[in-house]
Design a protein around this nucleic acid. Sequence first.
DNA 1: TGCCGTGGTTGAATCGTTTCATGCTGACGT
DNA 2: ACGTCAGCATGAAACGATTCAACCACGGCA
Lengths: 338, 338
Amino acid sequence: MDTRAVSIKDVADRAGVAVGTVSNVLNYPERVSTGTLDRVHQAIAELGFVRNDAARQLRAGLSRAIGLIVLDVSNPFFSSLARSAEEAAAESASTVVLGDSGHDSAREARYIDVFEQQRVKGMLISPVGDISERMESLRRHGIPVVLVDRVDPHKKTSSVSVDDVAGGYAAVKHLLDEGRRRIVFVGASPEIQQVADRLAGARKAMAERPEAELEIVEAESMTVLSGRAAGELMAERPRAELPDGIFCANDLLAIGVMQAVLLMRGWRIPDDVALIGYDDIDFAQSAVVPLSTVRRPTSQIGRTAIELLLESIDGEDGEYRQIVFQPELIARDSTGRA
Amino acid sequence: MDTRAVSIKDVADRAGVAVGTVSNVLNYPERVSTGTLDRVHQAIAELGFVRNDAARQLRAGLSRAIGLIVLDVSNPFFSSLARSAEEAAAESASTVVLGDSGHDSAREARYIDVFEQQRVKGMLISPVGDISERMESLRRHGIPVVLVDRVDPHKKTSSVSVDDVAGGYAAVKHLLDEGRRRIVFVGASPEIQQVADRLAGARKAMAERPEAELEIVEAESMTVLSGRAAGELMAERPRAELPDGIFCANDLLAIGVMQAVLLMRGWRIPDDVALIGYDDIDFAQSAVVPLSTVRRPTSQIGRTAIELLLESIDGEDGEYRQIVFQPELIARDSTGRA
DNA sequence: TGCCGTGGTTGAATCGTTTCATGCTGACGT
DNA sequence: ACGTCAGCATGAAACGATTCAACCACGGCA
């Protein structure tokens, strides 16, 4: 009933050659004469042979897999990042295995364990919090890691990130340049490094305009729903206390805030309040009011991270590079006077 | 510099026991005396031993991994599906490896190859097109597969899906019940089974109201952007030819259409046109105008699919079950008279 | 005629686990 | 005092691929 797994040995018998030859057909076809090649291929097809990756890995030492751990797949920034990493990896015949930590350190740790047991070639991690000790142990085990969307404070790991301070600065400067003075920053917990950096940039821009004031609203998480909740909370205030410029720590939040604002009678974007987000996800430009935002070169980040990783796989270790991309301001209707 | 991989043998030496004992510590701790247990654990910690999964798999025959291939991770329906499958799998100490086919048969085939080589316990596939031949070969190789969001026409594979004909019927019946008569169906190519089924349901509902008319608009793909394009195309028509009810084959399309409609002067939702989507993604209820939709029990689908798979892994084969969930109409503002 | 080189092929050794039949030890019952 | 038995520990065999030194056949060359 159950045809036991076909091995390279079975193929060899069927084709009337040695196992070594079959292996060569699989890995170095140019070393094999065309006649044998044909016979082996035929045998493979007839038997429905599928190479056992576990055995190959065991002998060869390492796999073709690269682990990627993101904070949240349902955030388009990360799904887009994952896709570009996958494409870049495919060019080097590597596969990306995706893990979603969901902002949870325990799940993150579990994925790192699994990847380590699988002896992946390397990992790309967008870390939840501080994972220096864990990185340390990976380093000792000789597994290269590249941090994405985050730099290692100790500079002991390569990373690909974006200058979020500059991004935050650009966003708020843009609001100020448009004449806004009562600014609100909407972000999740400032324990999240990215949020903290964008806020720091915002503060820097504010410092150049002493007459303007900045208020901070803390959202539950970085999602549309939280953004909407934050927006609705603001909307309850007396008219005079409403801001005229809002900077959200990411586009999802901004879209949520936009929804809340649009539902209020007589509060319009950008006439009454200007709104700017962060990331430039696909949704931003197709929002009801096209959303101004700070673009991060998502696919470049993914691609570069993979390249950096592959580089440090065959290169010497001890050489850690920090690549920082500059974000770009994208002004759309949500901050332009009508 | 580079500490060569620590093996179970090294641990055994260090702890002064045999390799078999270390293996038992790892897999059957209850068979080992507490003293030995401690010593081995200590040795593992000191040496930083990490079990080599390839070797384990090679010997044990199969892995703990389950392959999941979805059509598009950036569609919230699938990312939510993936998450629930992951959670269900975790309860049985299995890991889900995610692959994104991007509606591309070639990529789908590549992922199936990779998963097969990795000797996954089984696969969950949301197929791009007809993959019966491929399923046939997987079956011969003894790899269980469960189709998600699709039934196997030949009934030779288990599947977990939703009655999309019923869903399409419910959606359009709802529009008709609300008094709408000029209905438009927006979907991608009818070659996609899901689109075809929802359309069939729509037609069934229409048949009960001969005086109403149905028009079909074909969008590029099932994304927000395509929806918006389709909406803008409609908006160019003379007023008299505009529909008063629109059913979109999924929520992303519906959100795109909504954006296009809201940008038109004086065309309101639901006053002038009622709009209903499909899936009930998180975004639906938080859309500018909360979107009516047909809910699919996403997380139940993911969970059930995993359970079905695990069941057919240890159960006898030859028993294929088709589980079909009923969708549920969710009426929100986008179809209710203001 | 004998030697060498080359292109193909061979098959044993190896990777790091798990498995399992076997061996050892000490306690307990009679 | 002896047999039995439970509880642990042992270590060789096996999993299926890759690697590599050795081998073979054959044509060309001196």
